[in-house]
C-alpha cells in the first residue's frame, strides 16, 4: 500500500461550511480512514475564518493525542508583535507546540507577503528549513477564480525571486490546468512544491513526472472543500511508477518536515 500523508486538510466549524465537513479531529480521522489516508498536516477552521491567534492555539489543543494529525500554524507579520516579540520566540513556540509548517494567508489576514514585511523572518525560515504554505487564491483580497490564481502565481514568482531558498508550497491551484503557469516556476525555483489536491488535469501527474520527476509534488486533499476520494484515486491510479507515488503520497512531505530544525 502507498502511504498517504495529506498536506492540506482541515477540521472545525467554518462560517460558510461546504455541504459535508469534519467538525472535530475524530470526524476528520474517520474520513481519512474511509478514504485510505494515513496522516495529515492539519489546520482548523478557526485559523481560516476566526482569528489566526485563536485558531493556532485551538489546532494544537484539538490535535493533541491524535498521532496521525500534525498541526500547522498561520503566519502573521512580526511588526505587530501578535506572534511573539521576535522570530526566535515564534520558532521556540513552534517547537514547544510541535508545529513544523506555516501557512500564509495575506488576503484574509491583510498584509503584504514580501521582503518588506518578512525579510528577516524568511531569512530565518531558510536557515531552519521551515516550509511555508501559500494558497494561490490569497494574493489579493476580494478576487476569486482565474484572476486570483493568476496573481497568486505572480506572487510566488516575486517571493521566490527575493527568497530563492525559501521552501514554498503552492496550494489551491485552479482546476483549469495550470501547467503553463507553474512549469517555468518549477524550473527556476528548486524549493517550490505543489500541493496537488486540486490538480485535476487529465494525465497531468503522468506528464509532469515524466518531465520533472516526482520530488516537487505533495499529496493533499483540501478537505473539507473537496471529497477525499478524488485526490486519493487521482494519485493512486495515476500512470506513474510506484516510487513516484510513494514520494508524492508521503515521502516528500515527510522529508520536508524532518528537515525542519527548531
Amino acid at each position: 500500500m502507498i502511504k498517504l500523508y495529506d498536506c492540506n486538510a482541515s477540521f472545525g466549524v467554518a462560517d460558510v461550511p461546504p455541504p459535508r465537513y469534519a467538525a472535530t479531529p475524530d470526524e476528520l480521522i474517520a474520513e481519512m480512514d474511509f478514504c485510505n489516508v494515513d496522516e495529515a498536516l492539519v489546520t482548523c477552521a478557526a485559523q481560516w475564518c476566526d482569528s489566526p491567534l485563536v485558531g493556532n492555539e485551538l489546532v494544537v489543543k484539538e490535535a493533541q493525542g491524535h498521532v496521525r494529525l500534525h498541526p500547522a500554524w498561520m503566519l502573521l507579520p512580526p511588526q505587530t508583535g501578535e506572534q511573539g516579540s521576535s522570530v526566535d520566540a515564534l520558532l521556540s513556540d513552534m517547537a514547544r507546540a510541535g508545529v513544523r509548517a506555516l501557512w500564509a494567508l495575506p488576503a484574509r489576514n491583510k498584509y503584504l507577503l514580501n521582503a518588506t514585511t518578512f525579510g528577516s523572518v524568511f531569512e530565518e525560515f531558510v536557515e531552519h528549513d521551515i516550509p511555508l504554505f501559500l494558497p494561490l487564491t490569497e494574493a489579493v483580497p476580494g478576487l476569486a477564480g482565474h484572476a486570483a490564481t493568476h496573481l497568486g502565481w505572480q506572487l510566488v514568482d516575486t517571493l521566490l525571486g527575493q527568497f530563492p531558498r525559501l521552501t514554498l508550497v503552492a496550494t489551491e491551484q485552479s482546476v483549469w490546468g495550470q501547467d503553463r503557469y507553474f512549469r517555468p516556476l518549477i524550473e527556476r525555483y528548486a524549493k517550490l512544491y505543489l500541493d496537488i489536491s486540486t490538480y485535476e488535469q487529465g494525465r497531468g501527474l503522468e506528464d509532469f513526472c515524466r518531465r520533472y520527476g516526482a520530488d516537487r509534488l505533495l499529496f493533499g486533499t483540501h478537505y473539507p472543500e473537496v471529497p477525499m476520494g478524488g485526490p486519493v484515486l487521482n494519485l493512486l491510479n495515476a500512470d506513474i511508477p510506484n516510487e513516484h507515488k510513494e514520494l508524492i503520497g508521503s515521502g516528500n512531505l515527510t522529508r520536508l518536515l524532518r528537515e525542519v530544525r527548531l
Partner: peptide, 13 residues
C-alpha cells in the same frame, strides 16, 4: 480536462 480517476473517486467516496 479533468482526470476521470479524480472525478470517479469523488463519486465513489
Amino acid at each position: 480536462w479533468f482526470d476521470p480517476q479524480y472525478a470517479i473517486g469523488c463519486v465513489l467516496c
